[in-house]
Design a protein around this nucleic acid. Structure first.
Length: 187
DNA sequence: TTTAGGATGAACT
DNA sequence: GTTCATCCTAAAA
């Protein structure tokens, strides 16, 4: 059941493109991801387990949610075996259906595009916050993941990650080519 | 259209 | 006290 995510985040991240993340306010298809590993100075898990990142070191298939810049939440899918701190950051979603709840949750979004085209935005739109930290994504709850067949390799673009200051050279960000919900395109 | 800077709180040094 | 896997607004071009 969860065997699917029991591997290396760098291998698994691009294979999550196309799967659907369900939240309290609605659902979205994953169109942009980034991989983070323990041997990666940009990862929260780099320096070992702490109170904040302990979910990353737990079983795969759980949700790791944290607060960034004092006001935004970011959602990650934990991968790999227990004791290995790695995860895949969900950077952008394409709404399956734009629900009234998503609109209400993101009054700043003028266009549908602005609803979920960034890691903080998608958490706000779907209603995901720290109370969902550690949630089992394979358990049919308010927040869960619906696996779909991986997107074809020909539709996936690899690029460097965004918003980090360390290990900036690793091409561990993947997104669906030409998808309008991708937060930032290749330079 | 693009760019620069501020907001805001928890973890960590 | 500093850092941060971001977003939004206002101002410049």
């Amino acid at each position: 059941m969860t065997v699917d995510l029991d591997g290396d985040s760098v291998e698994l991240a691009p294979r999550l493109l196309g799967s659907v993340l369900h939240g309290p306010n609605g659902s979205g298809r994953i169109v942009e991801v980034e991989a983070y590993r323990q041997d990666d100075s940009a990862s929260h898990s780099f320096a070992g387990p702490t109170a904040r990142n302990e979910v990353m070191f737990g079983p795969c298939g759980r949700l790791y949610v944290y607060l960034i810049y004092g006001m935004h939440h970011c959602a990650n899918v934990v991968t790999g075996p227990v004791g290995d701190g790695q995860a895949v950051l969900i950077r952008a979603l394409e709404p399956v259906v734009v629900t009234p709840a998503m609109r209400t949750a993101r009054p700043k979004a003028r266009r549908d595009i602005d609803l979920t085209n960034g890691p903080g935005k998608l958490c706000q739109a779907l209603g995901i916050d720290r109370k969902h930290n550690g949630a089992d994504l394979f358990d049919a709850g308010a927040v869960h993941l619906e696996r779909q067949a991986p997107a074809p390799a020909s539709s996936i673009v690899a690029d460097v990650r965004i918003g980090i200051s360390k290990a900036i050279d690793r091409p561990w960000r993947w997104y669906l080519d030409a998808n309008p919900y991708v937060s930032k395109l290749a330079r």
